[in-house]
Amino acid sequence: MVRLEDISKTFNAGTINAKIALNHLNLQLNEGDFVTVIGGNGAGKSTMLNALAGTFPVDSGKIIIDEQDVTSMPDFKRATVLGRVFQDPMMGTNPKMMIEENLALAARRGQKRGLKWSISNDEREQYYEALKGLNLGLEDRMKTKVGLLSGGQRQALTLLMATIKKPKVLLLDEHTAALDPKTAEKVLFMSDKVVSENHLTTMMVTHNMRDAIAHGNRLIMMDAGRVVVDISGEDKKHLTVTDLLELFSKASGNTEANDKMLL
């Protein structure tokens, strides 16, 4: 479904601030995989997601989505098959537009935007039902400007926008990190629901090891720009935080794993 082949990316190459963010990274996602991604700061988690989304060109390697080589495709074209939710709740929605306008914008991913009216009545009904599913009462506020919503409501809306047109891959980049614990849990629950209902191939970056264990069918751990641990199936189901810490220090040869992981 998704293949990252030998991807390397160095930021500020050739300067004193050069930082190798991805180091010959290889990863393959199978159809329907829900992969949680953990790792210390600077391990390359977000860089990997951004490389896949096309935020910047990679230095070397190949990115393949659904048998199509997208390595040199700009991000707005890849967006046709990708759904994204960012860490910053301000990032995924347009605060000056209404809820329904935001959804209409997302529903037209990959379509030519012409001079047709931006939203039809049929769509409104469809959005009403979809918003109802979020259980936040947003279905009665479809004409509200998104700027008036809370961070959690915005992330829920972004999640809906990312999946309203079924993406081939859903990328969740620490999308609950900026929320309070209770709201974060709600948004995670919604994410689980939307992923399983639509059988979405998903990658979720998180800083929370418990979340990484509790969600998805597969867990990868990154260090220094490559995947160092890859656990799926039964092995993942029985995983504990202690196991993870042990695996990390073994894989990275780093005895300070505890400190680094907790950062």
Partner: peptide, 28 residues
Amino acid sequence: WFFGTEKGCSMRATGVNKQMARAQGINP
């Protein structure tokens, strides 16, 4: 009328948040 159309909405989205626009498949 124009800023109520698909193209007009895309333009409004670009003006507020280019990254969001790109994530929605819009070329700003």
